[in-house]
Amino acid sequence: MSQAIKTEKLCFTYPGVEDTPGVAVFDGLDLTVDEGDFVAVLGGNGSGKSTLAKHFNAILLPTGGTVWVCGLDTSREENLIPIRRQVGMVFQNPDNQIVANVVEEDVAFGPENLGIPSGEIRQRVDAALNQVGMYAYRQHAPHLLSGGQKQRVAIAGILAMAPKCVVLDEPTAMLDPKGRREVLDTVLQLNREKGITVVLITHHMDEAAKAKRVVILDQGRIAAQGTPAQVFSQVDLLHSLGLAAPETVELCHALNAEGYSLPLDRLDAESCAQAILDAITGEETT
C-alpha cells in the first residue's frame, strides 16, 4: 500500500524571538500514514500534535528531515500547490476558516482558486454539500449556522477540491456533543465511502476509538501507536502521559484491581458489559 504521508527524521524548532532560544518540538520523528487509513493523533496540549498537522500541507516546513506528502517533498517550493490540492486542512475554530458570507460561495472558494471552469465548480460544490449533508443550507449565511454545521461546511470546502487526504486539527474542540457527533460521522463516512485518507487530531478518546489507527504523541515523540484496542489497553501509560483511556476501559482497568480479570480492549458499552457479564457468570459456574 502506498503512503499518503510520511515523515522521515522530522525535526522542527520554532524560531526564537530576539534573545530567547527557539522551542524544539520534534527531534527525529518518523511517522507514516497509509493511503485510505484513518489515523487519530492524540496527545495533551503542548505534545506537538497541531505543529505536526501543519507539516502535512506545508504550512510549516521541517528544520531537519523530510516530510513526504503523496510522494512530494514539502520543502520544495514548486510542490506547494500540488500538495495543498491533495491534502485539505480543517481547523479548530469554524468561524475563522469560512471566507464567504454564503455557504455555497465558501465551498466554491477552493476550486475557484484552482482555476476550475464554472460549470464543474457548480457540480463539485453541490456534490460536496450533499456529501456532508448541508445542501439544504447552501444559501444560508455561515454565521447563523451551529458549530457542527459550520465545520461540515468547512469540510465540504475541502472536499470540493477533491483531495486524497484530509487533516483535521481538533475539529470538534469547540463543539457540543451533537456537533461532535455530526462532524465525526461525516469524517468516518468520507473515509469509508470515498476512501479518503483521514488524519484526525483530537483529545477526545471516544473519537480516537473510532479510528483505524491511533498515534499518541508526547513531547514530540510517539509514545504509542497501533489499533485503538492496542493503544487504549495501555492504561497505565496513558495515565502517566496525563491522558485517560475511554471510560469503558477505565472501568475494566479499575475492576481488575478489585479481583476481576477483564480484557482492556472493550471500547463500547455493549462489548464492555458482555465482558463483565462473562467474568461474573464464568465465576459462578466454576
Binding site: 475511554p246 469503558t248 464492555c272 458482555q274 461474573i280
Partner: peptide
C-alpha cells in the same frame, strides 16, 4: 455517562 450505559447493557442481560 458511559458507565451508566454499561450498567444499562448489563441490566438488559438480566443482571
Amino acid at each position: 455517562p458511559e458507565v451508566t450505559r454499561v450498567f444499562l447493557a448489563l441490566e438488559k442481560r438480566g443482571l
